[in-house]
Write a protein that binds this DNA or RNA. Sequence first.
DNA 1: CTGAAAGCGCTAACAC
DNA 2: GTGTTAGCGCTTTCAG
Lengths: 330, 330
Amino acid sequence: MKKLSPTIRDVAAAAGVSVATVSKYMNGAQRFSAPVEAKLKAAIEELGYRSNPLARSMITGRTRTIGLTILDISNPHFTNVVKGANRIALRHDYTLLLVDIDETQARERPLIEALAQRVDGLIVSSRLSDEEAKWMLDLDKPIVLLRRSDELPIPSVGIDNRLAAYMLARHLLNLGHRQIAYLGFGQARINDERIRGVRECLDEVGLTLEVHDAHAPTARAGEHACSRVMLGPHRPQAVICYNDLIALGFMKEAASLGIRVPQDVSVTGVDNVPYSEYASPALTTVDVQSEKMGELAMQKLIDALAGHPDTGHSMFEPRLIVRDSTAPCR
Amino acid sequence: MKKLSPTIRDVAAAAGVSVATVSKYMNGAQRFSAPVEAKLKAAIEELGYRSNPLARSMITGRTRTIGLTILDISNPHFTNVVKGANRIALRHDYTLLLVDIDETQARERPLIEALAQRVDGLIVSSRLSDEEAKWMLDLDKPIVLLRRSDELPIPSVGIDNRLAAYMLARHLLNLGHRQIAYLGFGQARINDERIRGVRECLDEVGLTLEVHDAHAPTARAGEHACSRVMLGPHRPQAVICYNDLIALGFMKEAASLGIRVPQDVSVTGVDNVPYSEYASPALTTVDVQSEKMGELAMQKLIDALAGHPDTGHSMFEPRLIVRDSTAPCR
DNA sequence: CTGAAAGCGCTAACAC
DNA sequence: GTGTTAGCGCTTTCAG
């Protein structure tokens, strides 16, 4: 078998030219005389030469790699973001270096700092507050945040969480519900925005909101929280969950408890993950355009890399998806 | 603000030592005299120095990065594999470079070849046949395959697909079903193994198997296939789907068609993805230990990287998970 | 324990 | 068009 892979010098020697010529040829930097081109092609083919991207990156200072940190790869919302980002990256010949923060806030900073050294730019989804994320500015790499940041001069992409939550509340009010509960996830920075949106809507008709916390953004957490919410002192007629996964778990547990959805309680989520459609009853939710978010975040980053920075926040418009988990209040 | 990040030379100058000393210090290669150590620590802190992993990799030839190619990041089975692999990688201070093949077979080879140059080793999930995958041997990097390969001398991890399918068939036979259909995905290499497992079981009782194809391993594809399977000339009493996603889509469409699961037809999947549990009826399936597969694949690779190669195939044992989508035949 | 020097594989001026 | 030469930031002998 083979030894070490051939270097640019091996090719130069085999083709009888200089390394500079080989380098230029590999980069398609200019045109060559027919005989040289032929020899080059032959030598490269013969040796199976492929230029070493590491050495190249060291000189150019560019890796053609984008770092993407997500909070949890198990959450379909984030995989959709990745899907979108990846599509745009591939199109521009960039590779994604994916880091799953895995909902462990402690390691976030070191992981991102290490990542930053190996990539040309970063797309970051983080639970850090603006204050806690200031160090990102010192990374000296273009960054796009997957949530609004009012204080940091970093471009970002997200949805209007207040509006999304407002829409769900309005939908439930229209169905005649009056006792509405919110099952949130306090660790998420956008949780407050969603609570605000719901409150804003309920305020208009003089209703108050019962707020619960699921402690995790997962189906399992939704399951656990269900009895606490439904069998507590103030049984709600409708529950707005922080995200679809919590809602899915909630609905499953409700069924176990003999509580029917939507007859006994209406349930909603947020995100419109693929499986919300295949649950039964199919989940009423708000589409947040996860894939498009990933696409736009990547596009912004690539633009920045190309010298067209953009420090604004882009907000996608949420869209209410009414399915079968919500119904008129009895 | 700062300009370019400081290099090892800056630190050496600031600390009044040589670059070699700084290098050794950064790598914890040896012990140092107290004054030198103090100066180094101070200089590094002062300048905010972090060694450049690219330059380091170029010399050592190691990147502490593992490449992982998966067929589709939208499939929860694969995200679980990633989760497991990532856990082990982190534990050994490796980073994952994830590539989503996105079910596009054409680009597979170039993507993997490019990936191979940037990592120390690869975990590959591919639809290529052994024959088509021979070039992987020339990559000169340790590889672990996420499926059995009998011909290639490459270590692999997988489950016993024949047994998994056999178990599902046996379960359905025990429930009294006689007209059993298989809704597969012909592109997958393991599809044949699963068909074989089902056939083997049905042969024992002299039954034949109706085989259909969903054309994609997705819920959407399962939806589309449902009417073809259920409203064709040979309506089955039970359907074994290639994976959970297809089964989920199938069940949704069945409901639309007024076909009740499990009363009118029993349905099973394979994989035990998280959402199979939250569907209703909850899906009967076979657990393939996706996370453990990812963990073991990574462990094998890291062992290989540490000089303990292992060319064997590790097979996880499938486990039948009976839930509510299967019931006795009326 | 510490330092000087020789590169890793490649690119980027600048000559020819 | 093609070659020469200087490094990129770091590790690694090998002296001292």
